[in-house]
Amino acid sequence: MEEELQAKQPKKVDYKSVMQTRMNVKHLGKVLANLAFFVMAYCLIVSFGSFITTLIAFFIAFVIIVFMLVITIGSLGLIYANPNVAKGWSYATAVMDGNSSIVNFFITLFQSIPYVSACGILIAVGAILCLKFSKSGKHTTRYAFLGIAIAVFVVDFILAVGGAIK
């Protein structure tokens, strides 16, 4: 009977170990709170940074598009205004070929106008997507789009310049 009564009694809680575990869990909680604060601050900074980056991207895209448009229209104008180069851009390059290496460089660079223009458009699309996503607060996606746009532009630009040098 006594054994049964003793078995029914609740086990004595070791408060020392409970308090020690609680202490460690509290520490972990504080570290997690620090981490949460850090992530929050990072998000805020990135959001602000992304806003600035978006503005810059828009500016770059605008400048590139305008620049490319001017060059394209100018080139087309040059081609069609001069009956001697009416055969097109290839004839123009043939005319200028051998005159100067710098001229050659620019000629080849102009030939890659569609690529660079495409890059400009990509950047503009990226920037628009960035702006769209910045409203929903998904900074990672926003940055990913911007990163892709810039990466494509940089790679294409390098290819274009590389082609021009060759």
Binding site: H27, L28, K30, V31, L32, N34, L35, F38
Partner: peptide
């Protein structure tokens, strides 16, 4: 645990 959770001790107490 604290070391890894606190980004290698940077955010530790």
């Amino acid at each position: 645990l604290y070391f890894f959770v606190s980004l290698f001790g940077i955010l530790d107490l």
